[in-house]
Design a protein around this nucleic acid. Sequence first.
DNA 1: TCCGGATATTAGACAAAGTCCAGATTGCCG
DNA 2: CGGCAATCTGGACTTTGTCTAATATCCGGA
Lengths: 139, 139
Amino acid sequence: MMRMHYTRDNMAGLLRSHDINPTHQRIEIAHALFSRQEHLSADQVMAIVNTRHSETSKATVYNTLKLFLEKGLVREVIVDPSKVFFDPNTSPHHHLYEVDTGKLSDIDAEQVQISGLPLLPAGMVTEGIDLIVRVRRKA
Amino acid sequence: MMRMHYTRDNMAGLLRSHDINPTHQRIEIAHALFSRQEHLSADQVMAIVNTRHSETSKATVYNTLKLFLEKGLVREVIVDPSKVFFDPNTSPHHHLYEVDTGKLSDIDAEQVQISGLPLLPAGMVTEGIDLIVRVRRKA
DNA sequence: TCCGGATATTAGACAAAGTCCAGATTGCCG
DNA sequence: CGGCAATCTGGACTTTGTCTAATATCCGGA
Ligand SMILES: [Mn+2]
Ligand SMILES: [Mn+2]
Ligand SMILES: [Zn+2]
Ligand SMILES: [Zn+2]
């Protein structure tokens, strides 16, 4: 997939296309995630956004990430019991998690086949299927 | 698989077979998990074990669950960003998570096939593959 | 049985992630 | 400019989990 350059200016349009009012703080937070294309925790986003001078509060970082999540701009990845990661890649994909380093990387869903899953309980719909491969350095 | 009845008396042998010294507290905690065969959080274990009268401290509950984990007596399930679940079922299996209720149930690994996973980075070994089907009640 | 060391448990202080709220700011429209 | 909705904020608060130093329990040997 051809990748565009994620400038702050592009962020406003991206936010608007997801029905999010583009404010200064929201643009900075989106830029932190999309320019890096990495999985970031709220704490990491907080640190990135406030590197030069403090300009975004903790409450806003959490509120904004939750808003992005609701609007489908980012995805949540739950692999570490101590923190949630936010993922700017919303296309269907899986994850490889290096347990000793905490490094998290993507596995394209295209090449992975999952079959034999049981039928869902009546009245239920799948919200998502998370596949996490946990690896560690060989002893 | 034929299932035995998990009495407190059985717990001592189970603990010993996993190289765990069976103390009163450890037996109670193991009994909470194995007699129910459910996924429990530390908090839930704490509540169960202290129903009649307070007899096990928070520190011991956490220490013991971690010990059980290290000794392979239980397994950790990470699906909810706010708490870890402990699973007395250590046979390979996957999970179905009902996001609105928090209900967690097992999916037998036998019938599920996962193929096409990429090769691991050199020097890495798989510690486990977690597959979580997230479902919610239809709108 | 008594002693001493190793093992296990404890209360409570602490830390980290995340939530909540009431007040201040901002942006926009008339 | 004045009003109003939307947004942002500091800081108190909650929850989950960790740590520590003191105590209690267990067990093997004299
Ligand atoms: Mn700035
Ligand atoms: Mn008892
Ligand atoms: Zn990802
Ligand atoms: Zn399970």
